[in-house]
Design a protein around this nucleic acid. Sequence first.
DNA 1: CGCCATTATGCTTATAAAAACTTAACGCCT
DNA 2: AGGCGTTAAGTTTTTATAAGCATAATGGCG
Lengths: 108, 108
Amino acid sequence: MQVRYKVWLEEGEHVFGDGLFSLLREIDRLGSINRAAQSLHMSYRQAWGRVKKAEERLGIDLLVTRTGGEDGGGAELTKEGRELMEKYNLFRREVDKAIKACYQAYFG
Amino acid sequence: MQVRYKVWLEEGEHVFGDGLFSLLREIDRLGSINRAAQSLHMSYRQAWGRVKKAEERLGIDLLVTRTGGEDGGGAELTKEGRELMEKYNLFRREVDKAIKACYQAYFG
DNA sequence: CGCCATTATGCTTATAAAAACTTAACGCCT
DNA sequence: AGGCGTTAAGTTTTTATAAGCATAATGGCG
């Protein structure tokens, strides 16, 4: 037996979770939504849509994007986006540790 | 902004979570799957199926059931079922406290 | 026997979530 | 002007999950 869980942030509706975190991390690493989507085996459409929805609901921009140009365009994190990711990452690690400890205490 | 989560136990596949916990609690209180299902606004079919699947995957009986008789039949928890519920309940309270504390620490 | 409330189970249908398809626009470069 | 790789966004199709429908069986009771 093992414990599993999902955790996310809401602003009325779903706003930020592990999926978006991974996606933003790949965008940061690769410099484009398109390449990040490929790397995570999802469609560009889905990746773009998730970022857009989160930005709407949070009321802040997560990405700065460019279209056209020599490399076709690209995307990178805004300062606010990076800050949110850093906070979420720390939060996430603590949650994981806490839940695993609870599980050990009762079922381990 | 607020934090939300789901947590559950797996044995390869989903085995026990909040939904089943509430269902078993109502069965214990009302003495029948049927009345418990009505009380939780779900169909008997769904309630019965969830219990059955969990029993299969856990490899233990959660309920003792009777069909027929003066009250038509009924169901009650087995000793193993009651023990699992008690452990899960304690586990669940600690998880809730821990996650809320993590959230406060980073986003509160 | 026929009635009643229940367990037990297969089968079908609706609903929501994810994935996929399509088209437009941007701006550099040859 | 046309190609390339990207962002941008509407629309459709598929898939997974939940809900709902139908029917059999049980056993005490009037």
